[in-house]
C-alpha cells in the first residue's frame, strides 16, 4: 500500500491534464492505496462550480468531482494562496475541500510515498 497524492496544477480544458488526471484517480480507486489530491496554481479553477463545456464539445468533469470520495480519494486540499490570487473562495467550489497554506501543503506532500503531477 502506498500513499499517493495527485498534484493538480494545470487549468481545466485548455489542456487535457485535469481530465486525464481525474481518470487516473478513478482507476486507482480500485486498488489498495491511500489517495489524496491537492489543487494549486491554475488547477483551482478545475473545482469551480458552474463549468459548462457543452459549447466546446469537451466532456466536462465537474459532475465527476463529487464521486472522488467514493473512489477512495477522500482528502481534497486546495492551496490557499493559489485560490486567493485568482479571486476564488471556498463557496466557488463544486465540492467540499480543505484549504491549506503553503507550509501545510508542503508538509502533506512530504508525507506521501508518490506524487503524481497533472
Amino acid at each position: 500500500m502506498a500513499k499517493i497524492m495527485f498534484v493538480n496544477r494545470n487549468a481545466p480544458h485548455g489542456t487535457i491534464y485535469a481530465w486525464e488526471g481525474l481518470e487516473v484517480v478513478l482507476i486507482f480507486g480500485a486498488y489498495e492505496n491511500e489517495l489524496a489530491a491537492v489543487y494549486m496554481d491554475d488547477a483551482v479553477f478545475s473545482l469551480k462550480k458552474g463549468q459548462d463545456t457543452s459549447a466546446l464539445g469537451i466532456k466536462g468533469f465537474v459532475q465527476t468531482l463529487p464521486v472522488l470520495e467514493d473512489y477512495g480519494c477522500e482528502k481534497i486540499y486546495v492551496d490557499k494562496e493559489s485560490m486567493e490570487k485568482r479571486g476564488l473562495k471556498t463557496d466557488d467550489f463544486a465540492i467540499p475541500v480543505e484549504v491549506m497554506d503553503s507550509a501545510g501543503i508542503g508538509k502533506i506532500m512530504e508525507e506521501q510515498d508518490v506524487l503524481l503531477p497533472f
Partner: peptide, 10 residues
C-alpha cells in the same frame, strides 16, 4: 491499463 500505473506506484 492504468492499473499498471497503480501497481508501479505500489
Amino acid at each position: 491499463g492504468l492499473g499498471q500505473l497503480s501497481e508501479i506506484c505500489t
